[in-house]
Design a protein around this nucleic acid. Structure first.
Lengths: 224, 224
DNA sequence: AGAATAGTGTCTATTAGACAGTATATT
DNA sequence: AATATACTGTCTAATAGACACTATTCT
């Protein structure tokens, strides 16, 4: 039995973020070369130590790290799971609270950071257990994606119905029927119309209604 | 920028388990009086420190704690989420890797431990953020429950179709049509028939086919 | 026979998928 | 008019829900 006040050697605690975005129609993870050993210089998930002196909670650490290392603020993220074992980090027993985050294409441009976008179907060998963490993120996106508006967070705030459908097709890896897709989206009452039209101009096309999500993330019962 | 090897004060890391079972037809959480300060003697979630010297990973810690504190082995559990903040524990910045576990009614009997079963709809005020953790566990059970055989882990290995239906009804909090339920379960091909029959004997009833899950946990697309 | 639960059949309403058709812009 | 995409309508198949019916045991 434990005595009151007895303590144990504490593990390392870090936060790692699987930041996903679309680049040239492919789903990509954002990687950053590690600034310190182990694996210094090797591209890895965006992450860092929990700063117990300044982070109020794990989400605060995520926000701090996203801002400092990728220049991002106000983007969607949610907890993915925690990877904790004696073996995952050569330094010590280590706990990584993993998050997955989505940004619209283009939100990463302009930042002068050495972010690398690597297609998720060709990430290659990653340091630590980052391959495993990325796989968990993809499962989450594909699983929850079909039942929520989470995939829409890969799009800018305002988008067309066709763009939304294309995102779901990419995330779920299958073609969707246009008519059924629109019917479901409308039935679920997720979107509101934004005034203004999008006009396509290479060759000639009918202008498009623009939409915005009514709520940041909606989860529903039915599959898209 | 961080220097190589720079470190930060490490937080406390614990594991907490929301152990759910059925007792008199109601869903209950198993609580244990805390053996040490803070909140010594107060019933709380089953949990404990991660032992970096003996636990290979977080799941090993869960198994160790379930065995030592509740006398349970081989039961279903899965990671729920991690609760990490400066405020959740009066001692220090604290990380709790929370798990949710299901046991059949009766698996808790015999153990002489001071386990208390408290109905989830009347848990009352709990120490730390344990109320929040319990709510997350219930959401998980109700959410994933409708799309998986997880609720069946509240039953013994062999059960009848009616028992299974009753479990889903309790978990999901709604009545289900018997015919539709059986049709879906059969279509999903989740169960195998166990030789032998269950005979009811208070008053007179037709004997029942017994079933077992084909796989420990199956997740499907369709709602039960 | 009667009670009690096990298990089946069937009708109808809803939802999904396929696919063709119409609409509206530019060149 | 031709083209390209936006958007709608409709038919059919699959699934869900309601509900009544039959089956098998014991007393």
């Amino acid at each position: 039995m434990l005595m009151a006040g007895a303590e144990f050697a504490r593990p390392i605690v870090t936060v790692d973020i699987v930041l996903l975005t679309l680049h040239e129609g492919r789903l990509c993870v954002a990687l950053l070369p590690r600034s310190a050993e182990p694996f210094a210089g090797v591209p890895a998930l965006i992450g860092g130590y929990l700063h117990t002196d300044e982070d109020a909670d794990a989400e605060a650490a995520v926000r701090r790290i996203l801002k400092a290392k990728a220049g991002l603020e106000g983007i969607f993220f949610e907890q993915l799971g925690t990877f904790a074992s004696a073996r995952r980090d050569p330094r010590d027993w280590s706990v990584s609270i993993a998050y997955f985050a989505l940004v619209p294409r283009g939100a990463l441009e302009g930042g002068a950071s050495p972010l690398e976008l690597r297609p998720v179907d060709a990430v290659g060998e990653m340091p630590f257990d980052h391959n495993e963490i990325i796989i968990a993120a993809l499962e989450r996106l594909r699983g929850k994606g079909a039942y929520s508006t989470i995939p829409a967070r890969l799009l800018p705030e305002v988008f067309t119905m066709s763009e939304l459908q294309a995102i779901y097709e990419t995330v779920m890896g299958e073609r969707l029927d246009q008519s059924a897709f629109r019917r479901k989206i409308n039935d679920l009452d997720l979107l509101e119309v934004v005034e203004g039209e999008k006009r396509q101009t290479e060759r000639a096309r009918r202008p498009t209604t623009l939409y915005r999500l009514k709520t940041p993330v909606a989860v529903f019962d039915r599959r898209i």
